[in-house]
Nucleic acid binder design. Structure first.
Lengths: 356, 356
DNA sequence: CGCTTCTATGTTAGCGCTGTCATAACGCGG
DNA sequence: CCGCGTTATGACAGCGCTAACATAGAAGCG
């Protein structure tokens, strides 16, 4: 009878029921297979592959040859489980089609490069419930750190993040107190500075074109900052126009047309971001308005597209790449949460451009 | 004595060496903790959480309450290892800053939505060696399927992909034979069709503005298709200009200027994509050229920005979202590789626009 | 030459979960 | 009231890997 005894490791592989799991197991090569071929123990193979602990050159060569011969690919599920360290960083952003988020991811990747860590990206679509699901789902991979855009989370999501014990960076804004670490800049202040800058340039008759405030809370903060700067000078917005959907060049174009149709004579229009402002520039081009003489335009973000326009867009450049990079660097440098939440300002700068 | 029985499972936890691993283990709640609190076995909790197998309503409630109370988050590393199924799909794209890739990812996410699967994204930066590393790294997570942009891989990467046994979709192009599945459209044909379309509109004096062919092989295929169409009509490109770097609006603007400075009188310029073509439109605006009368411009991709221009860009629209979505749907519908590689054409269409 | 100190490798015991095979309890028809 | 099919639950044995603790041999040293 082939019902031997099922002892030690896995003699049944062939014994009990002629390869019980072989048919469906496409997995194939494991550490044990490599070890057998190289005639060493599994742990030796493991150590050599991770450059961990000493190893005789001869053994190392034998093992590496066996790895190559078998086409062994380590199983990180097993590795992570055994070492309780997944080498994973969870990242949650609201969108990938708004170019600022891929840019942040670029910074994250740059900082992760060579660290052995891998980013797992979740996209929330500006939806807090989706975000909560993503938090749960990413936490289930036992990441070593987590990066999430913004401060707005459902109570459940916040509880999970806090309770997870992993380091958390909330990025893109610093206008609230973070759970652990915030990296970004103040959108309120950016809006305020925009107002002051434009007032300094002599503009007095302000209009505003924006997009969805519920989803994009940061756009709203910039608006509020702008309004505050105007109020301080005894002024207010003469006209304002906002769509419910996401920002886009087409929306900016339409909304500026709608804003101008409202009537009040304006000398400057501030847009919620560069996409919208670029649309505004297009509207001016199509209708023969020449910025900044006929109408000044101001954006936010410092996107390439705005700078490549025939008349470069006047805007504020934020440091998306730096934000992502800094967040990861700080997270990995200190693996336990500090007692006090930390805030890092990656700043912004005015790009004068030629539209305001 | 509170040392009741706690036996069976892991009595040494407290016995042998007073919590050997407890201090450093921030992990916290495990299935066992939930099971203990709900007074059932671990497997029962596991089954209930996965809706797998029968469960008495009372037990289910007790378990769910315990989960809530403890804040339990399942460990997918352990789950994946035990069930040899990670519920992961690996995705490798060359870039995130070129908007077409986030759009593909959007399709992938849409198809994955509700399936319980999660995408792990790698970005190769148009570098095949980086891509190879990503293949190894993603395969180590034992994904159930893999999506990768393009057909160009190092031999090692190809071997890993083939040997892994998982289903592979090579997306964005269909001009070569895939390992398993290809989803996208023919870039050569798109270029050819562009040529035919423009010839049909009466253009005869063609110029070309492009970007990095080594990294972006698909742009080159479109160029080759265009040249083939011209050759068939006894024509050829009168002038051509190309940068080594990635495409951008600014680059398109500069390169069109350089192209026109070359001398030959042109009546149409074909660009490697819409970013470049938008830059071309900007150059015309800045220099007073009015498309299409003074110079016709043609792009590729059908991006929003091109359509929002004062004169909408004439271009070809490809279906990035559909490509991503289709790839995942086909991959998940059939979990074993078909004997024959399969090719799915997601097509493209001409957007007449107003610049050609 | 006995003893410490490396260096190279192995043994053992899980990591936290799930597949598989029991087992218990409950109808229910004959 | 026996046997049988359900339904609900549990025991057990790993998944593939690695931390922690041996162990064995080779130096190093007074």
């Amino acid at each position: 009878m082939p019902v031997t005894k099922s002892t030690k490791l896995k003699p049944e592989r062939v014994g009990t029921r002629s390869g019980t799991r072989l048919p469906d197991r496409r997995q194939g090569v494991t550490l044990a297979d490599v070890a057998r071929l190289a005639e060493v123990s599994e742990i030796t193979v493991s150590r050599i592959l991770r450059n961990h602990g000493p190893a005789a050159p001869a053994t190392r060569d034998r093992v590496l040859a066996a790895v190559r011969e078998t086409g062994y690919v380590p199983n990180r599920l097993a590795g992570g489980l055994a070492s309780s360290g997944s080498q994973l960083v969870g990242v949650i952003v609201p969108s990938l089609t708004n170019i600022v988020f891929p840019e942040v991811l670029g910074g994250i990747r740059a900082a992760l490069d060579g660290s052995g860590f891998q980013a797992v990206i979740g996209v929330s679509d500006y939806d807090l419930v989706t975000e909560e699901e993503l938090v749960a789902s990413l936490l289930a991979w036992r990441p070593e750190a987590m990066v999430i855009a913004g401060f707005d989370h459902t109570p459940a999501a916040r509880a999970m993040l806090e309770g997870s014990g992993v380091r958390i960076a909330e990025i893109m804004e610093i206008d609230s107190t973070p759970i652990d670490l915030a990296v970004g800049h103040s959108h309120f202040q950016a809006g305020f500075d925009t107002g002051q800058y434009l007032l300094g340039r002599g503009y007095r008759r302000f209009g505003y074109v924006g997009h969805d405030w519920i989803a994009d809370r940061r756009a709203r903060l910039r608006h509020d900052g702008l309004v505050a700067a105007l109020a301080q000078a005894g002024l207010s917005l003469l006209a304002s126009q906002r769509i419910e959907g996401p920002s886009s060049v087409a929306a900016g174009r339409e909304q500026l047309a709608a804003l101008l149709a409202q009537g009040p004579k304006l000398d400057v229009v501030v847009f919620s971001n560069d996409d919208m402002a670029t649309g505004g520039v297009f509207h001016c081009m199509a209708t023969g308005l020449v910025p900044p003489q006929d109408l000044a335009l101001f954006g936010f973000n410092g996107l390439d597209i705005g700078q490549a326009l025939p008349t470069p867009l006047s805007t504020m450049r934020s440091n998306r790449f730096l934000t992502g990079k800094t967040a990861i660097e700080l997270l990995l440098a200190q693996r336990v949460r500090p007692s006090q939440p930390q805030v890092v300002d990656t700043g912004y700068e005015i790009l004068p451009g030629a539209t305001a």
